[in-house]
Design a protein around this nucleic acid. Structure first.
Lengths: 185, 185, 185, 185
DNA sequence: TATGAATGAGATTTCATTCAT
DNA sequence: AATGAATGAAATCTCATTCAT
């Protein structure tokens, strides 16, 4: 029974990975169930043995990302290190998380303007705001917005142009948007 | 001789505006020609008197934005003012341009990850890079990327949450990403 | 009043001629009212001042041909000359009629397999049969069919390939299908 | 592994046969995909599993005819029998081919004046010309045209009026257009 | 469990016809 | 009388989902 379960879960994940690759290449709107099945190397009908609908594949992709992101956010908000350090860590780890999952990141971007992303996005904004406020109670929402913007905007550039060295950008972002702030203090 | 209701150019623009509003609400992929026609208050077939296809509505929206953006970029690159001032002006005017056209901006975002946006996006990046290099030859690509990222990232937040005061964000962006740089020099 | 009437009739005929040219070029099925109006150099709506519908343009074209053909058939059936001579005249004049109206002939062919052509076609077959029977009571339906076939088949070839010298084909047809018969008698 | 109902090739042929029947009844221009699907007893979308478009159904019908006709033409041109005999055989077998496929023949006629038929038609004319020239080098293009015309014209009559005994017409055509020629030699 | 043929709702697009000017 | 913008019914084609095997 147990091995059976492992197989099913593994197959479920294979299909999800295939779906995310397809979504990344063509965008969710242009991605067909046929494409996902072909990418996963299975029959089209089999996709429906693991996911209820095309839409549910999308939800599973978002949920998978949210799970990873959630851990980072919790660490940042609840950690023991000084707030500024936790903030820097969050920037680094967020970028690290995304830079290893380019297909997923592209899929997220494809949905950024839809209601699907609303919750994940809100959580992220709130966590950064919380930590930045802990670190610098004197700074306002505007600075949070700029910092978050810098992270997302750099991500955006990398998604369009893979030559943008995303993994190396955490440093400059911190230099400009966070360390710069520290210096002035 | 006299046009039945409005002249053709005006009607063309009405339809495009309606389309952009629909694209903004539902995303391009989920927008139907019926929706656009209903939004414009005309029959479905009439849309095709002014645009060849659904796709061409999209292209017209992009072209309209590109025309506005192009003027800003040219001013920034070719203007007489000192480079740093031109850069600041570009940030302010880009945000001013977009903040008055929220629906169009959302449509652009909906397409950000597609090939459609590639050219406009590249032009923008190159212009900012050019001016920033004029202003601060010592700074590298990484700083350009952060600055562009901050602008786009702030835009992104405003698109998802209209309460983000986009029109007021040019100042903080400049403070953090540009003025900060000046001080250090 | 009279000149007004003449104008209307002339315009009606202009439109019909334009329609036949368009039908000839594109086939009736692919011909649009817009095409006809453009060919006639008038507005699309004006076509409807002279013809009730697209279909009625087609009927008018057929009626016009039928009127010309009818005269030929009557001459052949009712004329005073010897039957064989009347038959030869019919072959010559039918081909003469069609060879000066290639556009109309193409339009007819486009409709050959439709119910529209049934009556005109039946009248033609009956007339030829009548005259051939008068000329050669000993010959059967099969010979009529071959003769009619030869005429139509030659026409067909000319419609597809304008280089076929239709106007010169009446002679050979008569030689083979009619004179050949006479010789044997 | 086992096909659900019939194997794909058989289903493809069923659909084509249904399409040809519909084309025959209504003409290609007036034939709807729904009609074809209904005639084949399947759903509308299923037609598209086997043919890319409405147009491709037409092309398949033409290709199917062309394949059969091609065999006849090759036999006539390359056979060992005396030329005149091969010509007579060609007339007989062409009519035999068409008389067993009335629906297909009507479809062909529906397209006679279109570019689709140009190649098949040209091949046919060339083959007849070749063989007739072998048989009677003294006869010119005009006689070929009359012979081809007689065949096609008889076919035409049968298509409009099924009572015309097409299968019995090869004899009279040969008598008039071919044997008649022999006698004179 | 796995498959892919079959389906039909729904989308895009065309165009004959109408009618306000 | 003449126009051509506007319309919407009807056609083609797509594809998520189902289900017989």
């Amino acid at each position: 029974m147990a091995p059976k379960r492992v197989d099913k879960d593994a197959r479920r994940q294979e299909i999800l990975d295939a779906a995310v690759r397809v979504f990344s290449r063509k965008g969710f709107a242009a991605s067909r169930i046929d494409d996902v099945a072909a990418e996963a190397g299975i029959g089209k009908g089999s996709v429906y043995l693991y996911y209820d609908s095309r839409e549910s594949l999308l939800e599973a992709a978002l949920a998978q990302y949210a799970a990873g992101a959630d851990a980072l956010l919790r660490q940042a908000v609840e950690g023991d290190a000084p707030p500024l350090e936790r903030l820097i860590t969050l920037v680094h780890s967020t970028i690290a998380l995304l830079s290893t999952q380019r297909d997923l990141a592209r899929t997220l971007l494809d949905l950024w303007a839809t209601d699907h992303m609303r919750p994940a996005y809100r959580a992220y904004r709130e966590a950064v705001t919380t930590v930045l406020t802990q670190a610098r109670p004197d700074l306002g929402l505007a600075h949070t917005t700029v910092l978050i913007g810098a992270i997302e905007g750099v991500l955006l550039q990398w998604l369009i142009d893979p030559d943008v060295p995303l993994a190396d950008m955490a440093g400059p972002i911190v230099d400009v948007c966070v360390e710069g702030l520290r210096e002035r203090a």
